[in-house]
Design a protein around this nucleic acid. Structure first.
Lengths: 352, 352
DNA sequence: TTGAAAGCGCTACCAA
DNA sequence: TTGGTAGCGCTTTCAA
């Protein structure tokens, strides 16, 4: 309304809504220089309180929105964070993204999400794109980052945080989840229930980091090597992958009393497929997932799983990337302990 | 390797990896002006074939990556598309995003995703932010866009496509799904199975567009007004919301023989909650979802639902926003017919 | 068909 | 505490 009034009077004269309101216009209205406006907007450098107020008021009146491109070009931090996830269909990554984005927004940062589809090549491309865009920081939540990629990242000048694995470095931070602890708890749980033949359903991916959960399982299982037998099969990172893997297990003749999956998504598929074979959980076979996605609680039977706190991971990642007022560490390593969540899908091993 | 060799010889002299390779450097190497390089890179204006080749080769050698900020600032189209979704936890939106992003990437566009959490205020903010960033186009997949928002969008200069509802306009395109058709098919299906008391579980949201599925249900149900009774309850757009809504239905004493949900996510929760009350689907109560998210196939019992082709929606949206070589229509309206998918969660109504 | 040069809106440096 | 101003890398007239 105010704008309409202001624009009226004379003729067209360049409708004000047709162009961005610039710093300069704010400066003019506030009666100061663009430099001062910039200082106020960015909260940098000394500005007299009365001036600051005047500028802020002018900016508000004009509905000023900084042009991020100009800002980035001029060398200021770009206020855009990048995030790369392996598979945005997996709620695990979405949850991380969500809390990452929410936390970033709190500090006025935007987040751009790209997915690599578990392809090392796409990961590399995404990194290059983000680097070219000069994002302020990059969160990597993928399982296909091998040591070579990490090394390259470490030599670049872009702050990076690994949401799951990786390692800390010069400008690299890493958030690590103790999968081994989580897996150990899971195996202990099943062992205590009397299970002695366990199948592990892992990813189809041959990439280094993707194997972590599998390795964690193997190690945990080996602790009971005296009488615990296990088998490992693989499928995609999806319900369908879980179904395929179950088929392989069943065909192998191994006859597990419990099935542990690399993640909840696969566990859901495993559950479905077992039922197709007339096996129900937990009476005939116990089934366990990993991650504790929201769904795991809403399938039948509700999934026993290991809780990985994605919201905390996302928050930490943003926190790590965004330069804070106080002493900003630059890079660091955080370790998170996951927790076993026992629900209905696991129970005592059936009598032989 | 080549770069290392080139950089060697003298001292530090600004390591080449430390800065972006600029248009100017490419121009220098190719022995032309920056204007020419720009023409080549953007495929605009006349350039002699031999020149073009020389420039391309130089760009390749230097691993030139255009700086999107400079590009945007200089007035070129920004090659970034924005997308706003109500709830990125819902695979429905994720699926649209995925195919949108994939299609956009094909044309060299990036996609930035923001979510509005079903808040009109957040939607408005997101729109403003995107407008400030001068994105090349905006895909809106929310249910909280009322006529006022649409009107505002229509007056702006940003190309917009509504992924679900909305309406076509000056620079507005709309992809519409015939929810009424889908709902009608669902109701027919249940009616044919003998169901005469049906509960509809809708969203908690009082926003206009969010009601569409509910209205579609009501209309479909009214067609059988002679002997079909129904009740409407609401919850969040999540499995938990489905559980709450089921509780309300059960408490109301209505005793439905079938439950139709506004989407699959809620249906999953409904299934779980019914089981808690000792009711199993489809024997005691039939349960149906809407959307056909991947999960709907992997819950127990597999969900009867209505298929909404998200990949097609995403692809269409990108297609609409990106200026194509051929006659680019600018704005248009597309209508999509959803399909009924009958699985295990619905069956004959139990004898009274 | 090509080049020169004027900005786009902002930040950061140096002076005042 | 403030203002002046030189770019950031690119696109886009306007001339050549």
């Amino acid at each position: 309304m105010r704008e309409a009034a202001a624009a009226s009077g004379a003729g067209p004269a360049t409708a004000p809504e047709d162009r961005d309101v610039t710093l300069e216009e704010v400066a003019r209205l506030a009666g100061v220089s663009t430099a001062t406006v910039s200082r106020v907007i960015n909260n940098r450098g000394p500005v007299r309180e009365s001036t600051r107020r005047r500028v802020l008021e002018a900016a508000r009146r004009l509905r000023y929105k900084p042009n991020i491109h100009a800002r980035a070009l001029a060398g200021g931090a770009s206020r855009i964070l990048g995030m790369i996830a392996s598979n945005i269909e997996n709620p695990f990554f979405i949850d991380i993204f969500r809390s990452f984005e929410t936390e970033a927004a709190r500090y006025g940062y935007e987040v751009v999400l790209k997915h690599s589809d578990y392809s090392r090549k796409r990961l590399l491309e995404a990194i290059e794109t983000f680097a070219g865009q000069r994002v302020a920081g990059l969160a990597i939540a993928v399982s296909e980052a091998d040591e070579k990629v990490i090394e390259e990242l470490n030599e670049g000048r872009l702050p990076v945080v690994f949401c799951d694995g990786g390692r800390a470095g010069d400008r690299l931070s890493a958030i690590k989840v103790r999968y081994d602890t989580g897996m150990r708890r899971m195996v202990e749980h099943l062992y205590a229930l009397g299970h002695r033949r366990i199948a592990f359903l892992g990813h189809h991916l041959s990439l280094a980091a993707a194997r972590e959960r599998e390795r964690a399982f193997t190690e945990a299982a080996e602790l009971h090597s005296a009488d615990l037998r296990y088998i490992i099969e693989e499928g995609d990172d999806s319900p369908d992958g879980g179904r395929q893997a179950v088929q392989q297990v069943l065909r192998s003749g191994f006859e597990p009393t419990a099935v542990v999956c690399a993640n909840d998504l696969m566990a859901v598929g495993a559950l479905t497929e077992l039922r197709r074979y007339g096996l129900s959980a937990p009476e005939d076979v116990s089934v366990a997932g990993f991650d504790n996605i929201e769904f795991s609680e809403h399938v039948y039977p509700a999934l026993t799983t290991v809780s990985v706190p994605r919201d905390r991971i996302g928050r930490l990642a943003a926190w790590t990337l965004i330069p804070r007022e106080a002493g900003y560490p630059g890079s660091r390593e955080v370790v998170i302990d996951p927790e076993l969540i026992v629900r209905e899908s696991t129970g005592p091993a059936p009598r032989p």
